[in-house]
Design a protein around this nucleic acid. Structure first.
Lengths: 183, 183
DNA sequence: TGTACATCAGTGAACGCGCGTTCACTGATGTAC
DNA sequence: TGTACATCAGTGAACGCGCGTTCACTGATGTAC
């Protein structure tokens, strides 16, 4: 039953990608190792040939989910002016599609609460993701260099807060929140 | 072992108050009925004399946690000008003490993710809380009536986002986020 | 007001279930010669 | 290049555990007369 090194690596990738989707849909606690493995077409026993424990998988899943999002933002920066990139990112972020499609949405609002209660490793990964997003977004903010950084942080905070509130509210309240934050 | 109607009501209150603390510290899934009952000095079996199920308790706990916070905000409005009330609320919200003391902190960032994955009843309760907070805060915002409402929503979104991000990040990143949002 | 009975708050054992993790096993891959 | 052996990816049963919920039971409270 042993497989190639190459195949093993692909399997690891499949596990992480499935976990990155499932954890965004269900949260950390409700994402079981067995479900992740079965999403990758495997049985649960083999999990520990790929990861030390569930926590290590969650770190990899958060990194993968965030990398996806950051790549999409980088494409916006390549395609237009920095200001356009930020405006487009914000519009998509506050759009109903992003709020609804949790499996492929930004992990910051989806997992913020969960990671806040988790261990230092996961928090370090989350914090590093936030810093990367700040570094990207500040390129498209107006003002002096120091102002831009603080403005990027406040912008991200508003986006994350708006989506968090909209998802946790009844649909009508949710739509009202998103509309108000679109300006 | 039957107790007075009056005592039963006090017991219910004690259960809800304990649940309101525990759920903010641990999240919905990690808050067990047995732990809540034992925090109230009871055993788990009696829980169903007070609540239909765990979900009903969570609704009551979210309402209680939010009522606490709204009462504190109302006191600020009674004590000074509306603008001062909002400024004081925001300063306390972004202060390290509020970020750390989860058991008595604002439930919106703490439970946003959890409620986003929960049922309609819990979402309706959460949405009603958000609307109450908007109604309170907009009294202290500048600008025309319509502008004030949208501004209150954006302000709340930024506060909730900032605290969510700060809690889920490593301490250094967390402090940086809070500092940037304090302006 | 007193009495007899019904109600029910609270207890603690028990239920079925899903969880993370471990383990003996398999057979194909990797490696040493 | 070919062969013999070691490694290990993946399987599926099993582990101990905690979960939400149910239930028979208790004895004090509530109620009907």
């Amino acid at each position: 039953m042993r497989t190639t090194r190459e195949e093993k690596q692909k399997t690891s990738q499949r596990i992480v990608e499935g976990a990155a989707r499932l954890v965004r849909e269900r949260g950390i606690e409700a994402t079981s190792v067995a479900d992740v493995m079965s999403a990758a077409g495997l049985t649960h026993g083999g999990f520990y040939r790929h990861f030390e424990d569930k926590d290590a998988l969650m770190v990899a899943a958060l990194e993968a989910a965030f990398a996806e999002r950051l790549a999409a933002l980088d494409e916006r920066f390549d395609a237009g002016t920095p200001a356009e990139a930020v405006a487009g990112y914000q519009a998509e972020y506050l759009h109903d599609g992003h709020v609804t499609a949790r499996a492929i949405a930004c992990p910051l609002p989806l997992l913020g609460g969960d990671v806040g209660r988790a261990g230092d490793t996961l928090k370090a990964t989350y914090g590093a993701s936030v810093r990367q997003l700040i570094d990207s977004l500040e390129r498209g903010m107006p003002g002096s260099p120091e102002e831009r950084r603080a403005q990027a942080v406040r912008r991200i905070a508003m986006l994350v807060g708006a989506v968090t509130l909209a998802r946790a509210s009844d649909p009508e309240t949710g739509r009202m929140i998103l509309a108000a934050c679109r300006e």
